[in-house]
Design a protein around this nucleic acid. Sequence first.
DNA 1: CATAAATCTATTGCACGCAATTGAATTGCG
DNA 2: CGCAATTCAATTGCGTGCAATAGATTTATG
Lengths: 137, 137
Amino acid sequence: MLCFAIYGAAHAFTRAYKPLLEPLGLTYPQYLVMMALWAEDGQKVKMLGDRLGLDSGTLSPLLKRLEQSGLVKRKRDAEDERQVKITVTQQGLELKERSSGVMAAIGKATGCSLDEVTALREALVELTERLEGAGEK
Amino acid sequence: MLCFAIYGAAHAFTRAYKPLLEPLGLTYPQYLVMMALWAEDGQKVKMLGDRLGLDSGTLSPLLKRLEQSGLVKRKRDAEDERQVKITVTQQGLELKERSSGVMAAIGKATGCSLDEVTALREALVELTERLEGAGEK
DNA sequence: CATAAATCTATTGCACGCAATTGAATTGCG
DNA sequence: CGCAATTCAATTGCGTGCAATAGATTTATG
């Protein structure tokens, strides 16, 4: 059952990240969103959703919590008021520094060489694309 | 980001299963539980939790919904009244037949050879064990 | 034997994840 | 231009996932 192996691995990752992210006051999905924003600030909700594979039903409350924590600002775009632009605050930038150890700790926990990680990641991306392609017919 | 690839693949699987399981009235986690019970009937909640990596907080309401649907029965074990034994009903057994096409459809959607699937699965199980081992220290 | 410790299920509270709907804003078409 | 179709974010409802806790039962300990 490949499905079950992935299911278990995904949860194992979430559990592994949890103790590392807790001191930062972030959940795992929130951390993914912050990483996306650190990589490119000022993204619209739609853009984040496409990149992370999440819809507005998930992102809206998540972003609201990040705003509540003072990490991001949400603002309607002046040119297209349907869109909401998310910008990282000073506090959000500081969190980036404080979270620098997280990636390293996870890399160590996986105990994989860089080659192994790369191969596995590519296989999974490939698989994901095939599954999504099949679903759309 | 390996974490992100797994995160995406897990959701892609869930989405791929969804249209197949909907006609059966099952969610993906419910399907996993039913598969575990079809493989071995009469399991206790604890046993299911260990095998699927879920705790009682997740399983209790899930099993209650399966009972509501008439697929399983929950009964306190006579020998140890702390435990609850889950048994598949006649209706639950009939569902097994009706779901026989699901696995095949997913296998096809992945578009992987048996060797690829096996290799990927083993890599993920290995990774999961390392992550869990690291967490327990 | 009585009591403390451990085990097991259920409940509560919070945070996703997604379908479906709503409401506002923009685009396209006649 | 004017109205319909589209796009986008937010909301609602349901089903996980998990920590923390509670309650009941069994086991271990003195």
